[in-house]
């Protein structure tokens, strides 16, 4: 039963990441997940220094603000200067990370930052933190967080599908129709940073960084339409979660790392099959010519 909760929660989170991640890839912002995973440290450190507490809500708020600042500031710099989007993203997140390290060294040398928790998450323990409501046991709290996050992402993507599609593929056409490409761009990067920060706490940064890009990229290779891409990315994410759970079971390693590795393995298999198919097709064409 505990295993089932873990797999279901991880799958919900993975689908959330895969959905917003697919949209990021289309906008050439695939590195945003990695960037936010580093810059949230600044938010955490500042909220610790301001409120002098290690309570989770304060730290999450700080992390969320830092994620939003990363996304907004890097977009603003690249739009108002000659700097490329990826360079401005790197500039912002690396600077925020370095500033966080300086602040820790100066003012908070005594706090213990648990790298292990940040990178791996505490996925194996999430079924034990239950959500009680009038004495009823409603299941793990993480499950409900993941479900709410997925519903949020899904409803925004379903309701705004046309606009997201138009602003991703043809921003100038969208602008000519009176749809603000900028507003949707900022909206999407905000959605990504909300998803990423919520998922960091549950799943660890490694899983988030991997699932924001790898399922989406695999789906991008296979599909011609955005709707198909989103479906395929979700299926790949779920498959990677299940296979990763098996791998972690087999090798006795961290769940999040194993799931992330399996998403990469699925990408390699897909690439192999595509190359093989292209090769066989080319071979058949050559045969029919001769």
């Amino acid at each position: 039963m505990y295993e089932l909760w873990i797999v279901i929660t991880a799958a919900l989170m993975a689908v959330s990441c895969a959905l917003v991640g697919s949209l990021l890839i289309l906008r050439r912002m695939a590195m945003l997940g990695d960037a936010i995973s580093h810059s949230v440290l600044l938010g955490i450190v500042i909220s610790y220094l301001l409120f002098e507490t290690l309570a989770l809500p304060a730290l999450l708020l700080g992390a969320l603000l830092a994620g939003l600042v990363t996304a907004w500031l890097s977009t603003a710099i690249s739009q108002h200067s000659i700097i490329q989007p990826d360079a401005s993203l790197g500039l912002v997140f690396i600077w925020m990370f370095a500033l966080a390290l300086v602040l820790i060294a100066l003012f908070a040398d005594h706090i213990h930052l648990d790298h292990h928790h940040i990178v791996f998450g505490e996925m194996a323990f999430l079924p034990f933190e239950r959500w009680q409501w009038f004495g009823y046991d409603l299941g793990p709290r993480a499950f409900w967080t993941a479900l709410v996050l997925l519903i949020l992402n899904l409803s925004i993507i379903v309701f705004a599908f046309d606009r997201l599609q138009l602003t991703s593929f043809a921003p100038s056409f969208a602008i000519s129709l009176g749809i603000s490409a900028t507003v949707w761009h900022y909206g999407l990067v905000s959605l990504v940073s909300i998803t990423a920060v919520a998922a960091f706490d549950l799943m660890g940064s490694i899983l988030v960084v991997a699932f924001l890009v790898i399922p989406g990229a695999t789906a991008y290779l296979l599909s011609q339409r955005l709707k198909a891409m989103l479906w395929i990315a979700s299926l790949y994410a779920i498959a990677a979660v299940i296979l990763g759970f098996g791998l972690a079971w087999w090798l006795d390693t961290a769940l999040s790392a194993a799931m992330a590795v399996m998403s990469g393995v699925l990408l390699i298999i897909t690439l192999g099959i595509l190359k093989m198919r292209a090769y066989i097709q080319g071979y058949q064409v050559n045969q029919s010519k001769s």
Partner: peptide
């Protein structure tokens, strides 16, 4: 950018595994 992110995530995940 996608290629960079894929390679980063996969290698980092492998390292952490």
């Amino acid at each position: 950018d996608t290629a960079l992110a894929i390679i980063l995530a996969s290698f980092f995940a492998l390292g952490m595994l």
